[in-house]
Design a protein around this nucleic acid. Structure first.
Lengths: 226, 226
DNA sequence: CACAAGTTTGGATCGACGTTCCAACCGTGC
DNA sequence: GCACGGTTGGAACGTCGATCCAAACTTGTG
């Protein structure tokens, strides 16, 4: 006669579950989020969780929407558009840097509310930069895709680094050495870039990319579509 | 007494396995590639496959390297750099469009040979565009990340569309309708962009993004780092 | 030609995962 | 005090990647 565990007194809710999921993701990465780990942390069963959440994708999407919404709402509304765009981009970068699983999720299921908000936040501010209407859609898509690309890279890096700073520099020098030892005849660019790879700062490089993009956008007024 | 299946006469090899894996991926998407499906197609056992391949990541990476190497080697070497860059970018786009699993893999494990070749191909041609040395690294990173972002998006779209053209337009109009029905006060940009979303061409939009980056990169000569 | 050593293959098996299903539990209205 | 529906806990199922080992073949050596 095995007794059943006592029923929880406080009610469960989707928010509670999403919060617990985000904690697990932050602590152990994407691989750590399993329904078993969730039931353990919430001391409940599968049934309770599936009653509030459709499936694992739903859970990941909800957690991602949470993070992104927080980032975007933090940006001051009436800042100068060009500066606001850099703030939005950097905010997204930092959030994805702190929660790499967000980056992976954004490039895996891009049709959820989180990406909608990102498009609005970026596209709306581009419009205030006097980007011609016909180019606005393409420009917003390009910038969002650049952010998503960096997001995916960050997530991938976090997946094989244990978020340890010593690991990071060790990894960077090891890759840099491998790049440097490549045949300069076959890989001239990568060979030369090895030094900069070791010394570069992800965040600064990301911002440099945003600036390149913004500079490209600025040329769109002068030379409208032919 | 169950007899063991007869041993295969022709030898297995990593190339053969990678080829079979690529076929399965093209036919059924990423979810279809399982070791069980592989053993069935090659009519062999798990042991034989694991003898030539370390694990599933290794297999996916090898298949991806194959596709990317083929694309990059097709680009004419001595074309005008600016045009060559557009050719490289479009080649990558088309390859990822034809094999969406490549896109997913590139944003999941970006430290493999495939990405190295992409960096070389793009960075090398940027160097011939007289991009200043100090900006070259950032510029190449930006362009590669843009390509990776689009790659991830393409892979995600392919994951929920069955590669059916009718599905695609139906999906596009359905999303477009949802965008159009959003509150214009809360989502002014997305609301307005709904029409262009329905009518847009992924390939052209991708190229427009490449041109924006190239235009931004062109400004780097005139205003060197301060 | 024999036979040992090494390589390649086939498939049983393992543990973990997402998900389904259902009995037990509890609050609420009658 | 009793039925009923929204909730909860956990056993069970099917599938996956991966491991492991014996059988089947190849190669080298005398």
């Amino acid at each position: 006669m095995t007794k059943r565990a006592p029923r929880r007194t406080d009610g469960l809710s989707k928010e509670l579950i999403v919060k617990a999921a985000a904690e697990i993701l932050d602590e152990g990465g994407e691989a750590a989020l399993t329904f078993r780990a969730l039931t353990a942390r919430l001391s409940t069963g599968y049934g309770a969780i599936y009653h509030h959440v459709a499936n694992k994708s739903d859970l990941l999407a909800a957690a991602t929407d949470d993070v992104i919404a927080r980032v975007l709402s933090d940006v001051v509304v009436d800042a100068e558009p060009r500066e606001a765009l850099r703030t939005v981009a950097l905010g997204l970068f930092d959030a994805i840097d702190a929660h790499p699983w967000v980056g992976a999720q954004l490039s895996r299921e891009p049709w959820r509310p989180a990406l909608l908000d990102i498009y609005e936040s970026i596209g709306g501010r581009l419009a205030r930069l006097d980007v011609p209407d016909r180019a606005l859609f393409d420009a917003a898509g390009a910038l969002v895709n650049y952010v998503l690309g960096v997001a995916g890279q960050n997530a991938a890096n976090a997946r094989l680094l244990a978020a340890d700073e010593a690991d990071r520099t060790a990894f960077l020098t090891s890759v840099s050495d491998r790049w440097a030892s490549l045949d300069p005849a076959q890989y001239p660019f990568v060979h030369k870039a090895a030094t900069q790879l070791r010394e570069h700062d992800d965040r600064q490089q990301f911002l440099a990319g945003v600036d390149i993009f913004l500079a490209g956008i600025a040329t769109l007024h002068q030379t409208p579509y032919s």
